[in-house]
Write a protein that binds this DNA or RNA. Sequence first.
DNA 1: TACCAGGTAAAAG
DNA 2: CTTTTACATGGT
Length: 273
Amino acid sequence: MESFQITHFNLRETLYSGQFFNFREEVNGLYTIVNGGDIFQVKQEENMIYYVGVDKNYLIDFFGLDFDEKKLSYFSDDVYFKEAFTLYRGLKIMNIDLFQTIISFVCSAASNQKKIENNIRLISKTFGTFNEKFDRHTFPTPEQILLEGNTLDLLLECKVGYRAKYILSICKFLVEQPTYLHEILRGDYTTSHKLLMNLPGIGSKVADCICLFGLHHMQAFPVDTWIKKILSTWYGIEGSQKHLELQAKEKFGDYGGYIQQYLFHYAREKKLL
DNA sequence: TACCAGGTAAAAG
DNA sequence: CTTTTACATGGT
């Protein structure tokens, strides 16, 4: 295995923070990770990262290791963020395969982390390409998902429930419009968010998660049930979904997504609220 | 057994 | 334009 040194990175904390759902822990802290068509293994021991299957630059991009934390200094006086950052520094915002992120967060609606992980694992196993070296399946392309005739039934076997029809429609849409994912990748935050909202099963919150974890648009601030409680209890911000989104963008600024992830992780881990 | 889960879309007010 | 409800499934 190759290796490199890194400070202020926590692999486990990052993987389990609810951004990413396609990994498996092997023995003693070794993780096998599926990111779109790429499969690789990573392990952390203190400040060393050991890896096989991809190169160092890939991991820096995937785990967002080049993010300059000084950019968050404008919010460092906030008591809740300060506490969360002290506890969980090393939690990074990832940069995950776009299509996999889209499907993952379509599955996230009214679900939970364990269920989403199971959905994504089953979708990989059912539609993806088997990789002998790592004994895992890639995450499929839209074409691969449509390849089987009875896609809807197969998706239901992946236990995605009512989200199956959304996934099927999204795959058809993306196959009919082959440049659409590139347009999403190329656009700025506002453009990408709009393009994502055109897809069935994707509303404002899911689009923001995809913008943040799949496109690294740091100003995306997903307002979910946890964040609603946080905004209300800690910051006295209440109102409609639209109102909360606007207020949050104003309060948390250009790197609101990063701050949001710390607050979210902190509230969940400590079982606050 | 109920109720809820990193919501969305469609129906109804 | 705002509020309510159905939607599949599994965790707690």
